[in-house]
Nucleic acid binder design. Structure first.
Length: 424
RNA sequence: GGAGAGGUGGCUGAGUGGCUGAAGGCAACGGAUUGCUAAUCCGUCGUAGGGGUUCAGACCCUUACCGAGGGUUCAAAUCCCUCCCUCUCCGCCA
């Protein structure tokens, strides 16, 4: 959420941002409401001031047994006026909020401006794409032959868009999770969190999934609860409504959770295999930092996420998203894409975004600055480190051998009973 | 699911209709002092909105907020209603 004061004073910037993010909101209406609201508030504040003074006076007069019926009658009328103005005020606030919560965050100056993914910017790549002297298979073929994923069984259980790992597939999934968490805790200094997988609508609002992504989430029937679409939601919201001390920052967390996404509106996209599913595992990195650190820490977080693929020895590239392609709440966003020989393309395995204080304002997450003692909004950011199914795809496709076996990456061996191959 | 207790400022914890934006303590911040890794003393110290002064830092006025939302009253942290949450006990169950 943006600061209404900022919008008032920087209308041009906000308009531009809304358009760059392919969004559309009635800013004019918002500002009209805002000025009406302020006028009414000044008025009702005056009346309340008067009421407070007179009520105090009535109290004193009663003590002295002086008559004060006329004052009481007068104040009853004032009370009515106040009630009426406050009612209007409440309606205005609600209408303002309805606009305000739909205004996207303002992209950072450095973010490439553009409509869609064709305008994203190449940042860097890493590693050599493997060359095979046979026709590489894709993950569906490999996994089915190796009997490490059972797509038939998962659809019998839950329909399309779900994964059932088995045998060494399940082991690989678990190994990757442990490898990633160990890397980020031991090597990178993140604090491990295992949060609830179901959270309140307040949390969903806090990180910006609500109201915009309502249709994309699984909601618990009869409860004000949603299945998390990413660990970002519970982890970023840990200190929702709190005022931290400056010395508490930065905080950096790593969390493994499953992620649940309805993927409404993406029917027919990436239907083969497990590139796009309704439930997937992910190891997520989240940082809470001071304002000045928002961008330098994002770069570090990105490097921490990249490290996973480097250690797995999987080629990848880093892309910076253009304004039109980045999410509602982000100001800057990098995607890490792992090479998939089976499809001869790159797969997004991580998205690292910073939000400045956009999420913090929504969730009331602040910290007290040490020198000035002033309360300031925390800056939040997160990135996948990494998303599991697509990393599994990258591993088995890049490490496949002509006979259908898959070599196990060196760093995963300790997590996989020191096996050398995934084989039937 | 049943019964009870409770939700107050960064934390802890008083406060049952007016002089309470809220005692006391802790923490924090500023200062004083002590020759020692800390103690003592003094002071400051909630958040958010609106209005005003100022180049700015800052300051002044005011309103709201004691889980959320309604209501009663001239006046509500305090009384009433609804909802949410936490804790304890019982039941059930991983």
């Amino acid at each position: 959420m943006l600061d209404i004061k900022f919008i008032r004073e920087n209308l041009g910037i906000v308009k531009q941002a809304v358009s760059n993010k392919n969004s559309n909101v009635d800013l004019k209406r918002l500002l009209t409401l805002d000025s009406t609201k302020r006028a009414l508030q000044t008025e009702t504040d005056q009346l309340k001031k008067q009421r407070n003074e007179v009520s105090k006076q009535i109290g004193l007069m009663k003590k002295d047994r002086k008559p004060c019926d006329d004052l009481m009658t007068q104040m009853r009328e004032t009370g009515e006026k106040i009630k009426n103005i406050d009612r209007t005020l409440r309606e205005i606030r609600i209408e303002m909020d309805e606009i305000l919560v739909w205004i996207p965050n303002i992209p950072h100056k450095s973010a490439p401006v553009g409509k869609g993914e064709e305008h994203n910017k190449f940042v860097r790549d890493y590693g050599e794409k493997p060359s095979f002297d046979f026709e590489p298979k894709d993950h569906v073929e490999l996994a089915t032959e190796l009997e490490i994923i059972d797509f038939e069984a998962s659809s019998r259980l839950s329909g399309s868009g779900f994964i059932l790992f088995k045998n060494q597939g399940a082991l690989l999934e678990r190994a990757l999770i442990n490898f990633m968490i160990d890397l980020h805790t031991i090597e990178h200094g993140y604090t491990e969190i295992s949060p609830p997988f179901i959270v309140s609508s307040a949390c969903m609002f806090g990180t910006g999934q609500l109201p915009k992504m309502e249709e994309d989430m699984y909601k618990v029937k009869d409860e004000d609860l949603y299945l998390i679409p990413t660990a970002e939601v519970p982890v970023t919201n840990i200190f929702r409504t709190k005022i931290l001390e400056e010395d508490d920052l930065p905080k950096q967390f790593v969390a493994y959770t499953p992620c649940f996404r309805r993927e409404a509106g993406s029917y027919g996209k990436d239907t083969r295999g497990m590139t796009r599913v309704h439930q997937f595992d992910k190891v997520e990195l989240v940082k809470l930092v001071k304002e000045a650190m928002a961008y330098s820490e994002l770069e570090k977080l990105l490097i921490n996420a990249e490290r996973v693929l480097q250690l797995l020895e999987i080629p990848y590239r880093v892309i910076e998203l253009c304004t039109g392609d980045m999410s509602f709440a982000a100001t800057k966003c990098y995607d890490i894409e792992a090479w998939s020989p089976g499809t001869n393309s790159y797969l997004e395995v991580s998205s690292c975004s910073t939000f400045e204080n956009f999420q913090a304002r929504r969730m009331g997450l602040r910290y007290r600055e040490k020198s000035s003692r002033k309360v300031k909004l925390v800056n939040t950011m997160n990135g996948s480190g990494l998303a599991l199914p697509r990393t599994v795809i990258a591993v088995i496709e890049n490490y496949q051998m002509e006979d259908g076996r898959v070599r196990i990456p060196q760093v995963l061996k300790p997590y996989m009973r020191n096996l050398n191959y995934i084989q039937k």
